[in-house]
Design a protein around this nucleic acid. Structure first.
Length: 572
DNA sequence: GCCGTTTTCGGCCCGACTGTTTTCAGTCG
C-alpha cells in the first residue's frame, strides 16, 4: 500500500507533539510541523518523488534529515524515530495538547507530578481534586480544563466555509451599530476562502471612544466569553463557533487586517523577509529602523516590501511571496468574469425548478448561457433521464431557445460513468448534446488503479467534455475516491478534456492544489454550481474562492468565455 | 531541524491576554 502525503504529515506532526512535550528545542519542533505542512500542500505524492529520486531537500523546510525520514516512511510505512518516541511515551499523551490551555510545558508537568498520560487520567485527577497540586495550576486554569473536558471541545471541530460565512455576515451587521466604529471586516480563513474554518476572525477600526468590545462580549448569542481585553476579545457563540475580535485605531487597520487574515505561515514568511530588509511587521504596521512607514492600508505592507499585493486566497506560503517579488502573480479570476453555468439540474431529474425558471434566473444574473445537465438513467434515485425523456428535454430546450432572448440553453447531461468506463447514454443522444458533464456516482470503493482506469477510459470517449466533481468527496462526510489525479490531469491535457470545479460548498471539488496542478498542465477548468434550484445558482462565489486559491486566472476557466468562444473550446 | 544579500553557525515572527510563580511564563493566533 502506497503511503500518502497525509500519512507522512501525520507522522511528522505526531513526532512534533512528542518532542514538544519532551521540552525539545521549539524550533526543532517547528521544523517537523513546517515539513508536515509542506508535504500536505505539495501537489505530488512523496512516494512518487522518492521513486523518481527527486531531491526532496529542494522542498521548502525540508533538509537532509527530514528528506531521509520521508524516504524511510515511504519505503517502510513508518518512522523508526517516532516508534522509539512512542515506546518512551505513554500512548495518547499528545491528545492532551488538544485541550485549549494545555501546551507542552503543562502537559509535561501533569505527567511529572500526577502521572497523567491521557484524557482519561486527566478526568480522574480532576474528579479527585488533584490538579491544584501541580505548580502553576490555579483555580482558573483548572476550571477552564474542566469545562473543555465536559464539552469535548478538544476534538477539534471545523465548520464548512458556507456556515461560517453566514455567521460572520450576521456578526458584521450586528456589530455595525456599535458606537465609534469606523470600519469592520472578516479576516482569517474565511477571508482566505478556506474550505473549512476553525473560528471566525473579525477586525475593526474604531475611534478611541467606542463600545465595540462591550457590544461584542455581551451579545445574547455569545454563550461564553473566553477572554476580554481592550483591543482583543474572544467568545464562543451558542452554535459553538469561536469568534475573535480585534479593535485598532484606523491608522493600524490595514496591518491588523493583514495580521489576522494570515495564514500564519504566510505571515511568518513575510516577517522573515522584512527582517532581511531591516524592516519589521506587526499588527500595527510596517517599520523601517524603528520608524513606522505604513499600515493604514493592507497594500502598504506589500508595497514597502517591494512586491505585488497578494490576494488573501493565495496567502498560504505556497510560493506566492517569491512570485509576488518577481511581479509575476496571476490575475485571479473573479465572479464578474463568469459568463455562464455549465452544470444545472431541473425538474427533469432531481432539480426543483423548470428549465425555463433556471434560464430566466441565469439571465438575471447576467449570464449568456447555461448548460442543462440532468442525471442519466443509472442514477435512479435522481430520476435520471432515459433516452425517451432525454429526447423530450432536447425538444423543450429548442422551443425555449427560440422563445427566450438574451440567454442560450446548452443541451447537456450529467452522464454517469459506468463501472467499465462507458457512458450511460446511447450515442444517438450523446451526439445531439452541446457538451457532457461526466461523473462517477456509484462504486466509490474501487482500487486506485481500477477507479483511475474507469475515468481514463471514459475520457477517451469522443463525447466526453467535462469531468464532473472529479474526486466525489463531500467535505467532512465522504472521502474522495481513490484516484491518481496526476494521471487524470495528464490525460485531460492530452485529450483536451475539461475538469470541473464544483462550487457546491460541501464539494469544492477540485481542491485548490489540484486546480493549480491542472493550470500548470494546461487543463481548462469549468467552475459550475451543480445547481438544483434557482437559488443554488448563487453558489458560484464559493467556486470562485476555491479557484482563486488554486491560482486560476480568467484564461484558465472555460466559462469566463462568451458563448461563441466557449463553443470553439467545446468543439474538439 | 532548517537555512544563508550577516552562508556552515547562530539565528529562527510577533504581540495580546491570562493566571499566577507578583514580574513573567505559557498559550494562542
Amino acid at each position: 500500500m502506497r503511503v500518502t502525503n497525509r500519512q507522512i504529515a501525520d507522522i511528522f506532526n505526531e513526532t512534533a507533539d512528542l518532542i514538544d512535550i519532551d521540552g525539545e528545542n521549539p524550533f526543532r519542533v517547528r521544523a517537523y510541523r513546517n515539513a508536515a505542512r509542506t508535504i500536505l500542500s505539495h501537489p505530488r505524492n512523496m512516494a512518487d518523488l522518492v521513486e523518481e529520486q527527486f531531491d526532496l531537500t529542494s522542498l521548502k523546510g525540508i533538509g537532509r534529515e527530514l528528506a531521509k525520514k520521508i524516504t524511510e516512511i515511504v519505503q517502510t510505512g513508518k518512522l523508526s524515530y517516532l516508534e522509539k518516541l512512542k515506546r518512551i511515551h505513554p500512548p495518547g499523551i499528545e491528545k492532551l495538547l488538544k485541550i485549549p490551555g494545555l501546551g507542552p510545558r503543562r502537559v509535561r508537568l501533569l505527567h511529572e507530578f500526577l502521572h497523567i498520560n491521557s484524557l482519561h487520567d486527566l478526568e480522574n485527577a480532576l474528579r479527585q481534586d488533584k490538579l491544584q497540586s501541580v505548580p502553576s495550576f490555579g483555580p482558573k486554569l483548572i476550571e477552564m480544563i474542566e469545562k473543555e473536558l465536559k464539552k469535548r471541545r478538544y476534538e477539534e471541530k471545523r465548520y464548512p466555509l458556507s456556515e461560517a460565512d453566514s455567521v460572520s455576515r450576521w456578526l458584521l451587521e450586528t456589530l455595525c451599530s456599535a458606537k465609534g466604529l469606523i470600519e469592520i471586516e472578516v479576516a482569517g480563513s474565511i477571508r482566505r476562502r478556506s474550505e473549512t474554518v476553525h473560528d471566525i476572525d473579525i477586525v475593526a477600526a474604531a475611534e478611541t471612544e467606542n463600545d465595540i468590545m462591550e457590544h461584542f462580549t455581551t451579545l445574547p448569542e455569545a454563550e461564553r466569553v473566553l477572554m476580554k481585553g481592550p483591543t482583543r476579545s474572544s467568545v464562543i457563540l451558542i452554535n459553538g463557533i469561536t469568534v475573535d475580535l480585534r479593535v485598532v485605531p484606523a491608522e493600524n487597520f490595514g496591518a491588523a487586517l493583514h495580521h489576522f487574515t494570515g495564514s500564519k505561515a504566510h505571515n511568518i514568511a513575510l516577517r522573515k523577509l522584512a527582517i532581511t530588509k531591516e524592516m519589521k511587521i506587526n499588527e500595527y504596521g510596517i517599520y523601517k529602523k524603528g520608524k513606522r512607514i505604513g499600515g493604514e492600508k493592507e497594500e502598504d505592507i506589500y508595497k514597502k516590501l517591494d512586491m505585488d499585493y497578494i490576494a488573501p486566497e493565495l496567502r498560504e506560503n505556497r510560493g506566492e511571496i517569491v512570485v509576488a517579488q518577481q511581479h509575476r502573480l496571476p490575475s485571479l479570476v473573479s465572479e464578474e468574469e463568469i459568463q455562464g453555468d455549465l452544470h444545472i439540474h431541473t425538474t427533469y431529474s432531481d432539480g426543483t425548478n423548470t428549465i425555463r425558471e433556471m434560464a430566466l434566473r441565469a439571465k438575471e444574473k447576467g449570464y449568456e448561457y447555461i448548460a442543462v445537465t440532468d442525471h442519466t438513467r443509472h442514477l435512479a434515485v435522481a430520476h435520471g433521464l432515459d433516452e425517451k425523456k432525454a429526447k423530450k428535454q432536447l425538444e423543450e430546450i429548442d422551443r425555449l431557445n427560440e422563445e427566450l432572448q438574451g440567454i442560450t440553453i446548452l443541451k447537456s447531461a450529467e452522464v454517469d460513468i459506468l463501472e467499465d468506463g462507458s457512458l450511460d447514454l446511447p450515442e444517438s443522444i450523446l451526439k445531439e448534446l452541446d457538451l457532457t458533464v461526466c461523473a462517477v456516482h456509484f462504486k466509490f470503493d474501487l482500487s486506485q488503479q481500477a477507479q483511475t482506469k474507469r475515468i481514463l477510459k471514459a475520457m477517451e470517449h469522443p463525447f466526453f467534455t467535462i469531468l464532473g466533481h472529479p474526486t466525489g468527496r463531500l467535505i467532512g462526510l465522504r472521502d474522495p475516491y481513490d484516484i491518481d489525479m496526476e494521471a487524470i490531469i495528464h490525460a485531460a491535457a492530452q485529450c483536451g478534456c475539461i475538469l470541473e470545479l464544483n462550487a457546491q460548498p460541501d464539494r469544492l471539488d477540485l481542491n485548490d492544489i489540484h486546480c493549480k496542478m491542472a493550470k500548470e498542465a494546461g487543463v481548462p477548468i469549468a467552475i459550475s454550481t451543480d445547481a438544483h434550484s434557482v437559488n443554488d445558482l448563487d453558489l458560484m462565489h464559493y467556486g470562485i474562492g476555491q479557484a482563486r486559491r488554486g491560482w486560476l486566472g480568467k484564461e484558465n476557466v472555460v466559462n469566463t468565455r462568451g458563448l461563441k468562444e466557449l463553443k470553439k473550446v467545446l468543439k474538439k
